[in-house]
Every structure is written in C-alpha cells, then in structure tokens.
C-alpha cells in the first residue's frame, strides 16, 4: 500500500461504489436512486407482490433513463406483471407517459412511437419499451427482432424473472433447467424444466449487430444505472436484460430478492456484460464467487434438488457447469483468483 493516494482518489469504502448513495459524494456522482429528486417513474401504491424484483428493476431503469433523457421520456409496456400491477383502473403508478397495447407488440409499438415523435418534431423525447421475459423472449420475439433489425431508436428493457408470473408461474423460454413451474412440475425422471432448452436473449440481440446490448441485475444498482445511462446516450436499437427475482414464482423470501439476484451473479449463472455492435466489450467480474448451491437453495422452485437424503447432485453439478461455462466464456473471474 502506497501513500500516494490523492485525496480525491480515496474511495468511500463504507458507502463507495456499492450502496445506493453516499453522503460524501457530489450529487452527480451518486446513483439516481439516492436522489431525493428522482423521478419515481413508478410510484407507491402499485400492486406488485412484497419484495418484487421487477417493480424495483423497472424503477431503477426508468429513473435512470429519465435522468439521462432529462425527463423527456415515454415508455411502452408489454402485457405482464409490470403492466398489471401498475395500471389497474382507476389508478396508475406511472408518473411518466406510458402506453400499453398488447402482449407481443411492445417493440413495434415503440418503433411507431419513436417514428411518430420524429415526424412530429419531438426529437428530444426518447423511447423505452419494456416487458417481462415471456413478452420478450417468446411472444414478443418477432417484433423485438424486427425492431432490432431496423435499428429503431428504442431502448428495450427485458425484466427477466424466468417464467410467466402474471398468469401463475408457467414456463417461458427463459426458465432455467430444473426450475419448477406450473407447467414444468417437479415430477418424473426430469423434474422441473428440462436441460438443453431456453433462449439466450442477450446473445440473440447481439447477433442483430445492434449498437448496444447489456445485462444487469437489481443487485447492482450502480452497474444497472451506468448501463441504462450508457444506452440512453446511444441512438438506434438497444437492449438491456435485467435479472429480477420473483419471490412468488421462485418461492423465495421477500426480503431475499436482492440477495438472490446477487448470488445469481456471483455464482456465474447470470453474467453481467456489455456488448457493442455484436461484440462483448466489458464484463462485470465476480467479486465473491459462490457455488450455485448457494443461489439455488434459497428458492423453492429448486427445492427438489435438495431433498433431504436425496440431494440431486448430478443436476446441481450440471447447473454448476452452466455457471462455469459462463465464467469461462465471459472471463468473469480473474485468473489468479480462479482457484
């Protein structure tokens, strides 16, 4: 340790780069969420379940986008939990202009919104489209791909809670192997969702060569806000895939939402990275690596892997291999630490 640490370079180890705010940082260096003047794009009184990761992720993302757009932002929403819990007549939680059409068309509606704004000369107003994993990776996939391919000036944000939660926890193409859902019960020879299925939506987005693709997690607000801010600074089609645990669908304690999201990152199952024009340009390194067990064990959807006396090591190890593959693919662990 050297003594040459200039005062301004002294990090705030207490409050520094990980907590939401820091009384010692200048207003500009704090997160948007730390600000008393944040836009609260979704305000109180919404009907999300206790500990909802999506409610949190959406406010994180949209408040950051609002700051980046200087308040000139409109949002388009696919059908899903986020839509339902924010806008049941006669009350809405949204405090920004917001439009919901149907389940599968949010990216296309957003394209139209962007085009309409351009044609009306409102070029300063930016457009965000958002949906859950079902609305993104399944039913809205065609429209999303079309929006990407045309490179429309839309930031699409997917809040991934790995199943159709709004309809009662059915499998989507984002549901991980072995996860129990209403349509992949923990029964038979291959309990839960089967291995070898599912879409890697961020990679698919990258394959469109759009200017910006990123993954983010509600467990890392600074990273999430930086990515949204980055995306908002770019024109063209952009995609951010946010990991949002669902206490109801995952069978986890409501207070553990952020913890579980963090463990997903730290075990390697949910890699954090950014890509530009199809190439990965940065990755979020794992800070305290944990085995996938730590992540899986907190969720009842994986409970069948940890039955007393019959722990399903084979499947847990297969999931560990998925995590390890991510770690290798993205270089999530620095070589010297990787023991």
């Amino acid at each position: 340790m050297t003594d040459d640490t200039a005062l301004q370079r002294v990090k705030f180890y207490q409050t520094g780069t990980r907590t939401v705010g820091n009384r010692l940082l200048t207003e500009d260096d704090r997160t948007v969420q730390a600000s008393m003047g944040r836009s609260n794009a979704i305000t109180s009184g919404h009907r999300a379940c206790q500990g909802c990761g999506e409610a949190l992720g959406a406010r994180y993302a949209l408040d950051a986008a609002m700051r980046a757009a200087d308040g000139r932002l409109v949002a388009v929403n696919a059908t899903g939990c986020l839509e339902v819990f924010t806008t049941p007549f006669p009350e809405t939680s949204w405090q920004i202009p917001w439009l919901h059409s149907v389940f599968g068309n949010a990216p296309a509606v957003a394209t139209g919104v962007a085009a309409g704004l351009r044609m009306r000369g409102k070029t300063d107003v930016r457009v965000v489209a958002q949906g859950g994993d079902g609305g993104t990776t399944d039913i809205g996939f065609g429209c999303l791909s079309g929006m990407f391919e045309r490179n429309d000036d839309v930031l699409y944000i997917c809040y991934d809670n790995e199943a159709y939660m709004n309809t009662g926890v059915q499998r989507s193409s984002a549901t991980p192997p072995t996860a129990r859902t209403a349509t992949t019960p923990a029964l038979g020879d291959a309990p839960g969702n089967v291995f070898g299925t599912g879409k890697n939506m961020p990679r698919i987005a990258m394959a469109h060569n759009i200017p910006y693709v990123a993954t983010a997690s509600v467990s890392d607000l600074h990273d999430l806000e930086a990515k949204v801010t980055r995306a908002m600074g770019i024109c063209g089609a952009r995609y951010i895939h946010v990991f949002v645990p669902c206490p109801l669908g995952w069978g986890s304690a409501s207070e553990n939402t952020v913890l579980i999201a963090r463990l997903a990152v730290e075990c390697g199952l949910f890699p954090l990275f950014e890509a530009e024009h199809g190439d990965v340009v940065s990755v979020g390194k794992i800070r305290r690596r944990v085995p996938v067990d730590d992540y899986l064990r907190l969720q009842r959807r994986f409970a069948h892997l940890f039955r007393k006396g019959a722990e399903d090591r084979q499947r847990i190890e297969a999931i560990q291999r998925m995590a390890d593959a991510n770690i290798t693919r993205y270089g999530l662990v620095d070589a010297e630490d990787d023991q």
């Binding site: 207490q14 705010g21 820091n22 909802c52």
Partner: peptide, 19 residues
C-alpha cells in the same frame, strides 16, 4: 450512515429520505 440503501432498494418507494 445514510448510505441510501433502504431508500433506493424499496420496491414500493416506501422509504422517505429526510435529507
């Protein structure tokens, strides 16, 4: 120590920051 975690991390905006 006023790190704003509770304020930021509440999915329901139910934490009031008093300044």
């Amino acid at each position: 120590f006023e790190c704003d975690n509770c304020y930021g991390i509440c999915p329901d905006n139910a934490v009031i920051k008093l300044g």
